[in-house]
Amino acid sequence: MKAAPEAQRRLLDLQAVDTALAQLAHRRKSLPELAEIEAASREISALEDERVRAQVTVDDLDRDISRFEKDIEQVRLRKDKDQKRLDSGAAMREIDGLQHELATLKRRQSELEDAELELMEQREAGVAGLADVQARIAAAVQRRNDAEKRRDSTLDEITKEQEFKSGARGPLAGDLPADLVTLYDKIRADSGMGAALVYAGRCGACRIELYGADLNRVKTAPADEVVRCEECRRIMVRTSESGL
């Protein structure tokens, strides 16, 4: 393929734009905030499971405490009723039975109150654990929100830069020979780079030094000949810096 030396040199400008666009695309996909957001989301999900378990524990304790309170109230009412009968002058045959039942009810009330107190202590620990999980969820959500804001801000900047670079690429490619751009784009699609400067006797793409017959081929090729590297197959652009 033939192309004017100046057109070949301008391929380097086109490659610089395409390299910048590729770097921006890579940056878009590899923002550190993306990993932060994913990690925070996983943490929130795990903490939500923990929160549900903690809430169930507190709810179960609340039901148990409520049941104990009802039992204690029933015992208290029964005890008060027996005490009133005893105080009102119960028959002699009933006194022993009432006194025995009162003693039993007092023990039962004490046992229930002790059990309720233990449950209340467990509930206090459960509520504290629930509050701790909720605080950790709030902190993780805040970290995720902050990371999302930073991500969005950076993505806006990247988008603007991509639009600027893409806007510059069109006119640049449009001023070059169509067949040269087609070849360049095909090579770039296959390898990520379509053209590179030959610098100090080396291919600027694969960095391999030219020597022997290959060096002679590049040196003796006409200035308007589009030369490609034997190793990486990219277009080699020759300038006064090429050292040929």
Score class of each variant (00 low, 15 high):
Met1Pro: 11
Lys2Met: 12
Lys2Glu: 13
Ala4Ser: 11
Pro5Glu: 08
Pro5Gln: 04
Glu6Asn: 08
Ala7Arg: 06
Leu12Asp: 08
Leu14Asp: 02
Gln15Glu: 14
Gln15Val: 01
Ala16Ile: 06
His26Leu: 06
Arg28Ala: 10
Ser30Ile: 09
Ala35Trp: 01
Glu38Gln: 08
Ala39Phe: 00
Ser41Ile: 01
Ser41Lys: 09
Arg42Lys: 12
Arg42Trp: 02
Ala46Lys: 05
Leu47Asn: 01
Ala54Lys: 11
Val56Cys: 03
Val58Ser: 14
Asp59Ser: 14
Asp60Tyr: 03
Arg63Asn: 08
Ile65Gln: 03
Arg67Met: 09
Arg67Asp: 12
Phe68Gln: 04
Glu69Phe: 11
Lys70Trp: 02
Gln74Trp: 09
Gln74Asn: 12
Leu77Trp: 07
Lys79Pro: 02
Asp80Glu: 11
Lys81Val: 05
Asp82Met: 15
Gln83Cys: 02
Lys84Pro: 01
Arg85Ile: 10
Leu86Phe: 14
Ser88Phe: 12
Gly89Arg: 00
Glu94Met: 15
Glu94His: 07
Glu94Asn: 09
Ile95Pro: 01
Asp96Glu: 10
Asp96Asn: 08
Glu101His: 05
Leu102Glu: 04
Lys106Asp: 12
Arg107Asp: 12
Arg108Ala: 10
Ser110Arg: 09
Leu112Pro: 02
Asp114Thr: 12
Leu117His: 10
Glu118Phe: 07
Met120Ser: 04
Met120Ile: 05
Glu121Cys: 04
Glu121Arg: 08
Arg123Trp: 02
Gly126Tyr: 03
Val127Ala: 14
Ala128Trp: 09
Ala128Tyr: 01
Arg136Leu: 10
Ile137Asp: 00
Gln142Lys: 14
Gln142Met: 12
Asn145Leu: 02
Lys149Trp: 00
Arg151Met: 07
Arg151Pro: 00
Asp152Ser: 13
Ser153Met: 07
Thr159Arg: 13
Lys160Val: 12
Gly167Asn: 13
Arg169Cys: 07
Arg169Leu: 10
Gly170Lys: 15
Leu172Val: 09
Asp175Thr: 07
Leu176Gly: 07
Pro177Trp: 14
Val181Pro: 05
Thr182Trp: 00
Arg188Ser: 11
Arg188Thr: 03
Met193Leu: 14
Met193Trp: 06
Met193Gly: 02
Ala195Cys: 05
Ala196Glu: 08
Ala200Arg: 15
Gly201Glu: 07
Cys206Lys: 15
Arg207Ala: 15
Glu209Trp: 05
Glu209Val: 11
Ala213Pro: 00
Asn216Glu: 15
Arg217Phe: 09
Thr220Arg: 15
Val227Tyr: 06
Cys229Phe: 12
Arg234Ala: 11
Arg234Pro: 01
Arg234Cys: 15
Arg234Thr: 15
Met236His: 04
Met236Arg: 04
Val237Phe: 09
Val237Tyr: 13
Leu244Gly: 00
Leu244Arg: 02
